[in-house]
Design a protein around this nucleic acid. Structure first.
Lengths: 114, 114
DNA sequence: TCTAATGTTCGATGATAATCGAACATTAGA
DNA sequence: TCTAATGTTCGATTATCATCGAACATTAGA
């Protein structure tokens, strides 16, 4: 399969990164990959078909958030933490902390009446 | 003029905030307003017509990033820093720091050959 | 009461993006 | 060599959004 395009560290754009993270499915993917370290599309259980997942992975890849490594029939995705940290210090982990807080709160405090 | 809608602090959504900040015009507006403290649309010189600016202000307002205070014929915009900090600690300033870095770099290191 | 200033809202348009199913490409393994 | 597994790419559809000009609303001030 063809090599997939990854932007250089110096080409990362803040607005593109923020946009990529502004989708609920994509930010969830990013949070999962940070925890897993590296993972294939298949090990992320999501309620979407594979072509849609591939589309989201492409958005993340082209914004510079993830890299894709090909191994056999698998594509192993990982977060470009060093590149992101170098260009946008603290951004990734601040965003993920906020993400964990919101999902955590939602799980910890269900609505009393429903 | 009608009262404009502002979401409650507890209703702020991370993905909506990231989306609002992912537009070049909007993030510039936010950076400017943080520095100014408070300002009307008119004092932000932008290459867009007023209806488009109003649209962007609405996006920022409905995501919870800015509040709009009406004073005479002016609408004074300001950043909801306390609310953002409470819900997404460190997010706003991390993003703005990254924004300042990128714009600063672009200005400081023009392409040598062009 | 007029008029000017400041924004908002509306309607239209063009661009971008999310989603899906189908077809295709690559690799591992039987 | 066949087949299965894993994703990517393509085409179509639908939805959302950025942009503009025009019309409207509100307020201050002449």
């Amino acid at each position: 399969m063809k090599a997939l395009h990854h932007p250089d560290r110096s080409d990362l754009q803040l607005t593109s990164v923020l946009y990529a993270l502004s989708d609920p499915i994509r930010i969830r993917l990013v949070a999962t990959l940070v925890k897993m370290g590296e993972g294939s599309c298949g090990c992320l259980d999501l309620p979407i078909v594979k072509s849609t997942l591939s589309h989201h992975m492409r958005t993340l890849r082209e914004s510079g958030i993830i890299r894709t490594r090909i191994q056999g029939t698998l594509r192993l995705q990982s977060i470009r933490e060093e590149d992101l940290e170098a260009r946008f210090p603290g951004l990734l982990h601040t965003v993920l902390q906020a993400y964990e807080n919101s999902t955590g709160e939602a799980a910890a405090y269900p609505l009393p009446q429903e």
